[in-house]
Amino acid sequence: MTTTTTAADIVEKSIISNGIPLSNVEVTRDSYKGKIDPDWCPGCGDFGVLTAMQKALVELGKQPHECITISGIGCSSNLPGFINTYGMHTLHGRALAVATGMKMANHELTVMVTGGDGDGFGIGGNHFLHTMRRNVDLTYIVMDNQIYGLTTGQTSPTSALGMQTKSTPEGNLENPINPMPLAMVGGATFVARAYTGQQAHLVDILKQAIDHKGFSLVDVFSPCVTYNKDNTYQWFKSRVKKLEDSGHDRTDFHSALDKGYMWGDEIPIGVFWQREDLPTLNDLEPVLDEGGPLAYRTLGITKTQSDSLMAEMM
């Protein structure tokens, strides 16, 4: 008893109901402007990430209602309110779990997850690992500022060793997570790093990530101008080096791992690793083979089906 509603039918019907042929509505940057303006601190790196996302979606020709942006909690997790896509602003660390449910229930949506380093690699670390190994077809954009901003400046899982923060006044004793190799060995099929200060490069990477079939991670250096006085725009500007300039082969796993570990005077940005031969979770799920998004199907089971279930119990 499944209907055969597809995205195409939906758009077709929406044309009839609204009297406006959607395909004729040109998607512009304005189409993606959110209801309210961001309330980030002036100079925050997250502005650049928001702009780049909007540009990428326009350039990819996506319709806003076909996209959903799901976040956790933190400064960067406020992003869904500032972009005109469907949005969910969930719980601290849980965005990937919610997004997996969303994608599996409606695999025709373009699902983007946004958040910070604490949200994703700290409290959400377990979901991060498992969403990668499942190869859920979504794009995870981490605005990595190496600090807890919304709680006014405590150490984060990506804070450098020795970094002085309000929770580590004598310096951070713990090794930071390096999201690049972690994601590669964790099973992510697209692993990239970008820098909010390099817009064109960031837009290009986001477009590739959104287009990628499978789990894509884009870890974006997004400086916190208020609480992180170590990893500033100046600090990144002199260090980030595009991988493509060094002729990196993104399909070479071991080379990608080596590049992923580079940190210091030179920090690579770009696409480290991509593989396109693995099916996504929704590709693998037979329930989604036909019938369109699960969320739009007719509910309940037929008498024939229930008679058969009942017979097993007799």
Binding site: A99, G101, M102, A105, H127
Partner: peptide, 17 residues
């Protein structure tokens, strides 16, 4: 934690979850 959040994601999409 993941279970309930995933169920909410699917429910929000429109499923009975």
């Amino acid at each position: 934690i993941g279970v309930m959040n995933m169920v909410i994601g699917a429910a929000h999409a429109g499923c009975r979850a």
